[in-house]
Nucleic acid binder design. Structure first.
Ligand SMILES: [Zn+2]
Ligand SMILES: [Zn+2]
Ligand SMILES: [Zn+2]
Ligand SMILES: [Zn+2]
Lengths: 146, 146
DNA sequence: ATACAGTCTACAGCGACTGTAGGGGCAAGT
DNA sequence: ACTTGCCCCTACAGTCGCTGTAGACTGTAT
């Protein structure tokens, strides 16, 4: 149960040192104990918490959603429907993005297939970017990070 | 052929006024003429160029790629293979992101299906986020914006 | 004792915008 | 001529989730 420094936590949880400090700054990791010289000290509970955050990020959850999930984790007697709602929202986001990207894939493929080479002036890829008429226009919503 | 103000260009090309000024600031739109009082003045060629940029953005191309495409557009006698290479790279990006998101979808679905309700302490969604062992780990690369 | 790796704070930068503050301009209606 | 109200201008801060940098200090191994 001896405390570990931020570097050890970093390799245990596979989250970069700078990212851990960033998470602390946005209130995701609480304020750790400090050694006499001011170094942050962590325990195994922090490894778990940080691994949880990492996996949630890998699943595409926003920091806000993760804050909510961590809040719920500390109240294990509450009904889990709040958790499931967050996960379902995330699934819906992922599926929406999938639909958008599938449309992009079709459009890009079509553009590339139509091009028979030659000069830029006659390139079908260029023409297709210039011309919106072949779009699945409703799929051209803003692509946000996910 | 009378010039239009930035607002007219904005509605003609469906790109926000602030975004047009931003594109100018990063060198994507050249430096427009100005009226005596300093207002930007555009012509129909700018509508086309800006629409091209918008469609390329909607297709997920980065600003750097779009700069390259615009550069190529002004040399219509070159071979179009450079264009096609950019488009193929973009398609590859889209397909990579699709694979990642499909893995996320499967993982989220499985988590949600496994949850039988009850308290947070026993929630399978929480458990699955805590436990990486059921992951398609290789699909957990960083999700970058696209 | 010295070298080297790790840690500290504070701040700037990324991409692709969006929003705000505080001003000036322009056409139509009265 | 004057007012109303929208349009335009610049310059800068904020968004998200980090990442990188600078410069100083600490901890450990040889
Ligand atoms: Zn081509
Ligand atoms: Zn399209
Ligand atoms: Zn549940
Ligand atoms: Zn996973």
């Amino acid at each position: 149960m001896k405390p570990m420094t931020i570097g050890r936590l970093s390799s245990a949880a596979k989250v970069k040192v700078t990212t851990i400090r960033y998470y602390e700054s946005i209130g995701l990791m609480g304020t750790p104990d400090r050694s006499a010289s001011g170094q942050r000290l962590y325990g195994s509970v922090d490894v778990e918490r940080l691994s949880f955050v990492r996996h949630a990020r890998e699943l595409g959850f926003s920091m806000d959603a993760i804050k909510d999930l961590i809040g719920l984790q500390t109240e294990p007697d509450q009904d889990c429907s709040a958790v499931d709602t967050i996960a379902q929202k995330q699934l819906a986001e992922v599926q929406k993005r999938l639909a958008q990207l599938e449309a992009l894939e079709r459009e890009l493929k079509r553009m590339i297939e139509n091009c028979r080479g030659g000069k830029v002036g006659g390139c079908q890829v260029m023409a297709a970017i210039n011309d919106h008429s072949e779009c699945e226009t409703d799929k051209h919503e803003r692509l946000k990070p996910l």
